[in-house]
Structures are given as C-alpha cells and as structure tokens.
C-alpha cells in the first residue's frame, strides 16, 4: 500500500518534470521574445514542430545519423527564427502589438500548412536516444528519454540564465527589455538584440522538439497548442521573467499530471486554461512578477 503511494508520487513528480521541461522550453522562449520586443509570439510552438518533424524524417525515416539530423533541424529553426524576426520586428516596426500578434497567428497557421505539404498530417516519432527499456524505481516506470529531457532542459536553462547575467550580449538583451529607446542611445544594436532573442528562443524550442518527439510524437499541427501552453506558463510566472516561466511551466505540468492521475485525461486541459484566466485577472504581473507595462498607443487595433 505504502509503496503504491510512493510510486504514484514518483510517477507524478517524474511526469511533472518531463512535461514541465517541455513547457518550460517554450515558456522561456516566449518570455525572451516578449522581453526584447513586447510581442507575444503565437508561432513559438512551430519551432518545436519544425525541429521534431525534421529529425523524425531525416533520422527516423531516412536513417541519417542522429547528430546530422539534429544539426539540420537546428539550421531549419534558425532560418525560421530569422524569418519571424523579419516579419514581427523589422517589417512590422510601426504596427500595434496586437497587429503583430495577428501576424504571428498567420505565421503559425501558414507554417502548419507548409509542414503538412512538405511532410504529411500524420503523427511522427523516432527512437529514443537510449533505447525504449523503462527504468524501474520502486513500482514507478520511467522512460530513459524522460531523463534526457529533464537533464538537457536543466542545462539549457541554466546556460541561458548564465548567458543573460554574464555576457555582454545577455546584458544588452536585458537592457533592451527595460527600455529600448535608452538602449539605443547607449549604443546597443537593438535589431541585432531582437534577432538574438528570437534565435535563442528558437533554439530552446528546437531542443524541446528534438527531446520530446520520441515520447510524445509530433505532427504538423502540434505547434499551436504547445505555444498556447507556453505563453500560459509564461504569463503564469510573469511575462519576461525566466525563473517565472520555469515555475509557471512546472505548475501547469503538475496540475495537468494530477488531473490525469486522479480524474480523467479528457479534461486534462481544463484546469490550465481556467488558471490562466484567473491569473490574468488577479495577478496580472504573474505569480513571480515580471515586466508588464504596455504603452497606451500600442493597445489599439485600429490605430497606429
């Protein structure tokens, strides 16, 4: 009896960490872009989808070496990040933030359509990095891929935090997030910084896609729901805060895991989206507290 409960707990913790890692990679990416530009990137999930699909077809179906497939996936995502930078920040410099949100929605569905033409609309996966045999801890079973996911995510996010705190480029990103005009005046190349934020954010998404596809599978339309989960987590933690995004992601993953464990998997998403409405209402700065100010002139859809 006791061991049953303990193994349940281990299972819940491991699932939370695995699912939470995926959400965290997206949420941190959303947060990075929001910090640098104020834009909510609806197409964030497409990074995950593109990388997952690329590796699935090159490594899974065509039998390329895994490392080559991953390298190609990263290049694809980098191109995509550059394209999004162009569409949302460089060409759309004078458009309202909500207009840019619409642009990223357009980018997201166009990408889904293009992916479905390049590949197909079926689900894809490829073999886990360390085989399929589950590891048993007490009565809990854990896929070795889950350990890959949690481990690599931890390294990536720790690396990102170090990058933001300790390198010139990271400091420039933080300066931009505080005040773009001031950052320009002290000579920070704002456009390059925005490109950097999209690039890093794209790489995080790519890592997520490559790590989780063996476990969760992927299809051309997977991106949108992942993106929504990602910015739910980012808002939950407080937009613009990396630790906040991490925390929000783990919280959502935990709520989902518990819902599935004690209730039904059918309503897995229900608590998540109820939470976001409640958080937006009562804690507009999120649970941890991030940046949250929007210029009035930017809020209106029909003005520029």
């Amino acid at each position: 009896m006791t061991s049953l409960i303990v193994s349940d707990l281990i299972q819940i913790v491991m699932t939370t960490l695995t699912v939470g890692s995926m959400y965290a990679l997206i949420a941190v990416g959303v947060s990075l872009i929001y910090s640098a530009t104020g834009v909510i990137n609806f197409a964030q999930g497409e990074f995950v989808m593109l990388s997952g699909m690329t590796v699935a077809s090159l490594y899974g179906s065509m039998g390329w070496p895994l490392t080559t497939a991953i390298a190609v996936a990263l290049v694809v995502v980098l191109f995509y990040a550059a394209l999004l930078t162009l569409l949302t920040s460089i060409l759309a410099a004078r458009i309202s933030l909500i207009g840019v949100l619409i642009i990223t929605i357009g980018a997201s569905i166009a990408t889904q359509g293009i992916a479905a033409r390049i590949w197909d609309s079926d689900t894809h996966r490829f073999a886990p990095f360390s085989g399929e045999d589950p590891i048993r801890i007490l009565d809990a079973t854990i896929s070795p891929q889950a350990l890959w996911i949690v481990g690599v995510t931890a390294i990536c996010i720790a690396g990102l935090i170090w990058f933001m705190r300790s390198t010139m480029a990271g400091k420039a990103m933080r300066a931009c997030s505080l005040d773009q005009a001031a950052a320009t005046m002290v000579g920070i190349p704002v456009k390059a910084t925005v490109l950097l934020s999209f690039t890093l954010s794209g790489l995080l998404g790519a890592v997520g896609g490559i790590l989780t596809t063996p476990l969760t599978t992927i299809d051309a339309n997977s991106g949108m729901l992942l993106a929504i989960k990602g910015f739910t987590a980012a808002m939950l933690g407080g937009m613009g805060s990396i630790p906040g995004a991490l925390f929000g992601a783990l919280l959502i993953a935990f709520v989902e895991t518990v819902t599935v464990t004690v209730g039904s998997s059918a309503f897995k998403e229900l608590p998540t989206f109820t939470i976001i409405i409640l958080v937006l209402l009562f804690l507009p700065r999120g649970l941890v507290g991030g940046r949250n100010e929007i210029g009035l002139q930017h809020e209106d859809l029909t003005r520029q």
Partner: peptide, 22 residues
C-alpha cells in the same frame, strides 16, 4: 485542400497586416 487553405490564410493574414494594418 485544408493545407493549402492554411497556407493561403496565414500568408494573407501576414501580408495584409504588414501592408495595411487597419
């Protein structure tokens, strides 16, 4: 096809917002 519809919808949305934000 649904896929083409998504592509056309998405690309048009982007193009319209960039050129004519109103």
């Amino acid at each position: 096809f649904a896929d083409y519809k998504k592509i056309i919808l998405g690309v048009t949305l982007i193009a319209v917002m960039l050129v004519f934000p109103r």
